[in-house]
Write a protein that binds this DNA or RNA. Structure first.
Length: 422
RNA sequence: GUGACCGUAGCUCAGUUGGCAGAGCACCAGGUUGUGGCCCUGGGGGUCGCGGGUUCAAAUCCCGUCGGUCACCCCA
């Protein structure tokens, strides 16, 4: 029996893993400069939390949850997204506002995998809890865009919309429902049956039948109350001010029920596949209260790491540095000296590799070559008799004997000369 | 959940009308004392995804199943 990763999951080796490491480091750097700090939450939570957080009618809850019962009959679910857990943690520990966190988390959804869509994926995100002012919206979107730009990505667009607060949305939902009921026979087959459950979903439908209905449908933006409208306009003005380019997307509806007012999404233009959303988020001013906390406004976003990797590949962007090596120690003597030398070199910040086998010199030199080392440090019996080692420059093949006590300083010097020639 | 295409060495893939399981790359070892790359020689590595069927004979044909990829739905 050969084991393999479960469907829709994968292993990440270098250089991809290195790329992820650098992505995360870059994200931490940007968010932490603005006062966000890392929040780690459990990989699973009470199932009920996600039902109430993401929303009972969402696909994520109705058909994609990785739900299980533990040995004490607790109903638990592997996180399908990051926000709900963060809010639970905020409420549980009664944190004061403004509360600003960033997170890195795996997310699990029982879906059929395809390009850019997996059963386990990884998300980077932030949450900003407390302020309901448009400054918060602007900051959060700013961070998202700055991060994506910092990776060197160019072919993307920012879509932005306002869902209004609960009353605006309910008013609009009713208007939309009326309109859809009137036009029911023109909808695609799927939505003929389902539009009543969550009419907003229709706005996202890609079937030509639905699109033709949506084109003439009432727009949420026209049903915003005065407060929501001015909030939305201020957000857009702020983005204009910061030179952030966006596209108004009146039909942008995102997959969670908790969003209110601002919603946004970054889509890649570099991908052929249909999964083009690399990150998205929005404001959720009712979420904290609906999960049992005191009424607290909030806004955040999530970015899919796997999608980012896909998009960077499509735009031919590489963050990874090829792991290099400075010195390869060729050990021909039955001695621990090579490891002591490695220890000294490492202490001087020099990257070291060596063979784990007492194989032939030819073999060890081949390994040295593959290791990308610039210098081979040869420790053999004839050298040891005179308390010396051989230092070989692998770039120009020159070599000389060096007393053991001088090894570190000689190698440092040689590395600098080699560096300067490149 | 629905549909299409694909499963042969670690990787990329050949394999003809059914007739001995292959190549390139990668890996390992040798090419005269203890010296890498290039080159030469050799070597290891396979349940042809799995199970059944047809046949003297199946990687090849048929059925089933699992896995992968892509699309729909939906999302990061």
């Amino acid at each position: 029996m050969k084991f393999k990763t479960p469907t829709g999951t994968s292993d990440f080796f270098a250089p991809e893993s290195k790329e992820i490491e650098l992505l995360v480091a870059g994200f931490a750097k940007i968010t932490e400069k603005l006062g966000y700090s890392l929040l780690l939450t459990p990989i699973f939570e009470d199932s009920e939390l996600f039902r109430r957080g993401a929303g009972e009618t969402t696909d994520i809850v109705t058909k994609e949850m990785y739900e299980f019962t533990d040995r004490s009959d607790r109903k638990l679910t592997l996180k399908p997204e990051g926000t709900t857990s963060a809010i639970r943690a905020f409420i549980e520990h009664s944190y004061s506002t403004p509360f600003k966190c960033w997170y890195l988390t795996p997310a699990f959804r029982y879906e059929k995998p395809q390009a850019g869509r997996y059963r386990q994926h990884h998300q980077l995100g932030i949450e900003l809890l407390g302020p309901d002012s448009y400054f918060a919206d602007i900051e959060v979107i700013y961070i998202l865009i700055k991060f994506i730009e910092s990776l060197g990505l160019k072919q993307f667009k920012l879509l932005i919309n306002s869902m209004g607060h609960r009353d605006c949305r309910n008013l609009y939902k009713q208007k939309l429902l009326d309109y859809l009921t009137f036009n029911e026979d023109r909808l695609c087959d799927d939505h003929k049956l389902r539009y009543k459950i969550n009419p907003l979903r229709i706005l996202d439908c890609k079937k030509t039948e639905c699109i033709s209905v949506v084109v003439e449908a009432p727009l949420l933006i026209d049903y915003l109350c005065e407060d929501c409208r001015s909030h939305h306009e201020s957000v857009l003005n702020g983005l204009d001010n910061l030179g952030i380019i966006y596209e108004a997307a009146p039909t942008l509806v995102r997959g969670f029920d908790y969003y209110s007012r601002t919603t946004f999404e970054v889509q890649s233009l570099a991908l052929n596949s249909s999964q083009s959303a690399i990150g998205g988020g929005g404001r959720y001013d009712n979420l904290v209260a609906s999960l049992g906390g005191v009424e607290t406004a909030g806004i955040g976003f999530g970015i899919g790491i796997e999608r980012l990797l896909l998009v960077m590949k499509a735009e031919s962007i590489r963050l990874n540095e090829i792991p290099s090596c400075d010195v390869f120690i060729v050990n021909l003597a039955k001695e621990f000296l090579p490891m002591r030398l490695a220890d000294k070199l490492l202490s001087s910040n020099i990257k070291v590799s060596y063979s784990y086998e007492q194989s032939s010199m030819k073999s060890q030199m081949r390994q040295a070559d593959k290791s990308t080392a610039k210098i081979a440090l040869i420790v053999g019996d004839s050298e040891l008799k005179e308390s010396e080692v051989t230092i070989k420059n692998l770039i120009d093949s020159s070599q000389y004997r060096c007393p053991i006590e001088r090894v570190v300083q000689d190698i440092k010097k040689l590395l600098t000369t080699i560096e300067s020639k490149h």
